[in-house]
């Protein structure tokens, strides 16, 4: 890919390409080459992580630092990089609570109540409850899962528990 094309690539395209390249690297039979590439990537990330951590600390300590950081994370590209390095000013828990609070009215109206059960550094658990009689669509479930993952792409997994017992009984009957 030419330098010019790289410059106009969207975040999505970059991440999709990143994914492909990681998969391709895993396929390389030459173990030395594979590990060298992995180490190179780790080192580069590490260099950026260190500088960005210091940059964030300087911003946070300055006048209106908190407000500035909030503005910074509104930018998608910057938010993505801060999330990657664990430097997002909001905790995983708050990010998930925020997105749930923002989306709850819409989700609720369409049949699902969402609540955060627990959130740790690697893993969050969310519970879905049917709200009223309407059967939640797959589309809605997917939408919820996507919204949560977007808010916390740094989690290994978000386990979504749902009380579907009633639904099963209905479909079985």
């Amino acid at each position: 890919m030419s330098g010019e094309a790289r410059g106009t690539e969207t975040l999505e395209q970059s991440l999709a390409r990143l994914e492909k390249l990681m998969a391709a690297l895993e396929e390389i039979a030459d173990g030395t080459g594979r590990e060298a590439a992995r180490e190179l990537l780790a080192l580069l990330l590490d260099l950026h992580a260190r500088s960005l951590a210091r940059l964030s600390a300087i911003i946070a300590a300055s006048d209106n630092g908190a407000a500035l950081l909030e503005k910074i994370v509104e930018d998608r590209d910057l938010r993505a990089i801060l999330l990657l390095h664990g430097l997002h000013p909001q905790s995983v828990e708050n990010r998930l609570l925020d997105v749930i609070a923002r989306m709850q009215p819409q989700w609720s109206a369409r049949g699902l109540h969402v609540s955060l059960v627990s959130a740790s550094k690697a893993f969050a658990m969310v519970q879905l409850q049917r709200n009223g009689v309407a059967e939640p669509t797959d589309q809605l479930r997917l939408e919820i899962e996507n919204a949560l993952t977007d808010a916390a792409p740094d989690l290994d997994d978000i386990l979504i528990e749902m009380d579907m017992t009633a639904l099963y009984t209905e479909t079985a009957a």
Binding site: E12, L15, L45, A80, A147, D150, A152, P153, L155
Partner: peptide, 11 residues
Amino acid sequence: RIESGNWASRL
């Protein structure tokens, strides 16, 4: 949205 799921965790 970024359509790459938990990309940060995987990277």
